[in-house]
Design a protein around this nucleic acid. Structure first.
Length: 547
DNA sequence: CTAGGGTTAG
């Protein structure tokens, strides 16, 4: 995590400009210090500008643009300053600038040193720029930096994780001294390729394992959704830090083990390891999935207790999502408005939440505000907007936004967007248009879309189109009973009990088991539909808004 | 001043 590193203030900075850098934790105070320097004619110290650059490039999160502005004003930066800029850019949101700086350095005939290469290679790895990385490897050899341990380990990591793992292996085997870093780099490389056997073998052969070695392996299992193996190692690990705990917590969350994730968190608290923002992100996601508002609020207050600097965009977005999914849309809106910095996901989370809760008008109003503020919406934004239109039954408006998405913003609609449109048309009873729309879609309609059409056909009592939708649906899924029940219900709703019976028999023939047994017998009409499609089947298939 | 591990929305 970038902010982790920010907490460390380099020792060389502390001595020259006393302790002001400790207090500079955000861009605003940094600008104040800058102004102070300018007023004093940079008399504060010979390295004032260098320190400013270091602070903005490396220490302060999100100040890299400012660092670039400062850097551009220096006529002849020294190698330290070049390295600082490359380092800061490599860990920023746009690592390509690190590579650009490196080429600029070359052009201006500044010789890179052994600090330079780990930073540039890190950028290449993050960007997955294999060819660029290979070129830099060549330069490293030419300049004789290959034996440098830091450079070598970063090279191993680069080749293992995004290039040719054989090159990584060669470098690894030829290393005079192989420390835990090199071993872990190989482990993570194999794991990233899904080669868990080799990853485990490297891990087992490692004589001296440090905490990261264990964390790499535990994370690999957790990401591969093998929580049993992850847990096994987790129970053996001699020492656990926050990353170890986070690996387990996020692993459980992504495997649907939200309850276990919360249990592990309790365990973590007991051992005294302090959670961080990554822990909180996973936990909020777990609460959202469980709909556990009480726990979600607890996590929220824990975050506030951790200090204001932890409440950033990521956590804010997760909070919005949690409150919305737990049914407290007012709190979600409150969090949204309280955020000083918002990104597209913040808008998406709140728009999705509002649309989800049926606040169609509010969703569209907020979307208008988003456009006024010139925040560029993406596909997820439009999914929320279309859901709102569908919910409000505004077909014309929905079609307008659909066009705006395609033509105005150049966003290619995906199955979700098409699904919203089909749902919108179907609800309005425009069945022919809905079917026509599906015919003309650029993507292959999935089961959800056919099911939507089937549902709409049932509601509007159109047997013929219902049959067609069902045929398509059967091609997609042969393992779900809901579809058959839904079709049989269409016939039932128009008193064609014979046909209804036929479908039921078809189900039995194929061996489909009906999950909700009782509803078929006693229910009729609307109640039947609701009863048959209750809870999980609706929720998991994107029908949450329908009822 | 240097290397390896963790993250929300859909």
């Amino acid at each position: 995590m970038i902010r982790k590193k920010a907490e460390r203030t380099p020792t060389h900075l502390q001595c020259s400009s006393s302790s002001i850098w400790q207090k500079v934790t955000n861009l605003r105070t940094l600008k104040q210090v800058h102004a102070l320097f300018v007023v004093n004619g940079f008399n504060t110290g010979p390295s004032a500008i260098r320190e400013l650059i270091f602070a903005s490039a490396v220490s302060i999160f999100g100040a890299i643009d400012y660092a670039h502005q400062l850097f551009d004003q220096i006529p002849e930066p020294n190698i330290f300053t070049w390295n600082t800029m490359i380092r800061g850019s490599a860990q920023s949101a746009d690592p390509g600038r690190a590579v650009y700086l490196y080429t600029q350095m070359d052009r201006r005939a500044v010789r890179p040193d052994h600090y330079t290469f780990p930073f540039v290679l890190k950028a290449c790895t993050r960007l997955r720029w294999v060819d660029t990385g290979l070129g830099i490897h060549g330069r490293i050899m030419k300049l004789g930096f290959e034996p440098n341990v830091f450079t070598r380990n970063t090279l191993i990591y680069f080749h293992a994780n995004c290039g040719d793992i054989c090159i990584a292996k060669e470098l690894f085997d030829d290393s005079a001294k192989r420390g835990a870093v090199a071993w872990s780099a190989m482990t993570s490389g194999y794991a990233r390729r899904g080669d868990m056997d080799n990853a485990r073998q490297v891990f087992n052969e490692m004589l001296i394992k440090d905490m990261v070695s264990w964390n790499v392996m535990i994370t690999a299992y957790a990401k591969g959704r093998d929580m049993q193996k992850a847990r096994e190692l987790f129970d053996q690990v001699p020492r656990k830090d926050v990353v170890t705990w986070n690996a387990m917590i996020s692993g459980y969350v992504s495997c649907g083990g939200q309850k276990q994730a919360l249990e592990v968190y309790e365990e973590m608290r007991c051992t005294g390891v302090v959670p961080d923002e990554v822990t909180m992100l996973s936990l909020l996601s777990a609460c959202a999935d469980l709909g556990d508002l009480k726990m979600g609020k607890k996590i929220h207050s824990s975050i506030l207790l951790m200090g204001p600097k932890y409440l950033d965009v990521l956590l804010g977005n997760a909070l919005i999502d949690m409150y919305a999914k737990c049914g407290d849309i007012d709190r979600a809106v409150e969090v949204f408005h309280s955020m000083s910095e918002k990104d597209v996901s913040s808008w998406n989370s709140i728009l999705g939440g509002l649309a989800f809760h049926g606040y169609a008008k509010e969703t569209l109003e907020l979307f208008a505000e988003m456009e006024r503020k010139k925040i560029r919406p993406n596909g997820i934004t439009f999914a929320a907007v279309l859901i709102a239109c569908s919910h409000a039954g505004s077909v014309k408006q929905g079609q307008g936004y659909f066009r705006l998405m395609k033509d105005g913003y150049g966003i290619e609609p995906n199955t979700r967007h098409y699904g919203c449109m089909v749902d919108m048309l179907g609800r309005a009873g425009l069945l022919a248009e809905a079917f026509d729309f599906v015919e003309k879609m650029k993507v292959e309609p999935n089961a959800v879309i056919w099911r939507t059409l089937l549902g709409a056909s049932r509601v509007h009592g159109n047997v013929e189109l219902g049959r067609k939708a069902n045929e398509e649906l059967l091609k997609k899924r042969h393992d779900e009973s809901g579809d058959y029940v839904l079709l049989s219900n269409i016939y039932a709703s128009i008193d064609d009990w014979n046909e209804a019976e036929t479908v039921r028999n078809l189900m039995d023939d194929i061996g489909v088991k009906k999950k909700c047994g009782s509803s078929l017998v006693k229910a009729s009409g609307e109640d039947f539909l609701l009863g048959t499609l209750s809870a999980e089947s609706l929720q998991t298939k994107g029908f949450r808004l329908n009822f």
